[in-house]
Amino acid sequence: MTTVTTRTVTYPADGLTMVGHLALPAGADRRPAVLIGPEGMGLSDVERRRADALAELGYVALAFDLHGGRYRGDPAEMLDRCMPLLANPGRMRGIGRAALDVLRAEPRTDPDRIAAIGYGTGGAIVLELGRDGVDLRAIGTVNALTTGRPGEAARIRCPVWAGVGSEDPIMPAGQRDAFAAEMQAAGVDWRLVVYGGALHAFHHPPVDHPVVPGVGYHPRHAQRAWRDIVGLLAECLPVRE
């Protein structure tokens, strides 16, 4: 098994001190890198393990923070923080760019070969990085079919992959259609995978606290969505040994 090195990184963003999780593959050479955005609850061991798994595959990976080192397990508290954030593209871009700066500054990172993936709120943030014209090799999102300000999707310069559950009440069919129309009108190389029978956050293992309605784990589709994201990275950001 490849030796992975991990460490905590702190950095300022959105008026907070963010606490991210950086995972490095074995070796000392520069590698392609992946930014990972968490669900609205915030950075947890789920995203940390994903960063570690990507480092096992040879990527430098940074799972970024949303809430200044806090995990917002209370649904009302999470929504109070996330809903204004999701309504403010500038704030989302600021959080994403701050994390991206940390990732680019890592000596192991090839700064010209970076992708971004995200889930829920973290997925909305990485999409906003694309709409802001950030140079990324790929964008992958789950549960984040957010649309942006008119015309800004034309700034996206890389393939976009999006996954969503067919029974997700937070990202229903109308939202799927709006996202697809935005991507298509902007000429983006986009894909949308609808996982049959899955709810919102279907990729996230069960948690020991209340969740918003419409959330549910689907183990089989969770594995499929992860394979699809790894496939996106293999296509757009291959690791060169």
Rank of each mutant, 00 (worst) to 15 (best):
R108T: 08
C158T: 15
A162R: 03
V193E: 14
G94Y: 03
V126Y: 05
R91H: 09
G94V: 04
V164G: 06
G90W: 04
I170C: 00
D177E: 15
S166N: 10
T146H: 13
E182W: 02
R91W: 03
A105W: 08
A87H: 10
D110T: 12
R104Q: 12
I95K: 02
L136Q: 01
V126D: 07
N143K: 01
G122L: 07
N143H: 15
G96R: 03
M171K: 00
G163P: 02
I125F: 04
V126I: 13
W161Y: 13
D110K: 11
I170Q: 10
D132K: 06
R93F: 10
D132Y: 04
E152Q: 15
G140W: 06
E128C: 01
Y119Q: 01
G120Y: 00
A87S: 14
W161Q: 12
G140H: 05
I95H: 01
D135W: 02
G187Q: 05
W190R: 03
T109R: 09
P107K: 08
R113W: 12
A153R: 14
E167G: 03
G96V: 05
R155I: 14
G130I: 03
C158F: 13
A173D: 15
R137I: 00
L136R: 00
S166D: 12
L129K: 06
G151R: 12
A173L: 09
E182N: 09
L192E: 04
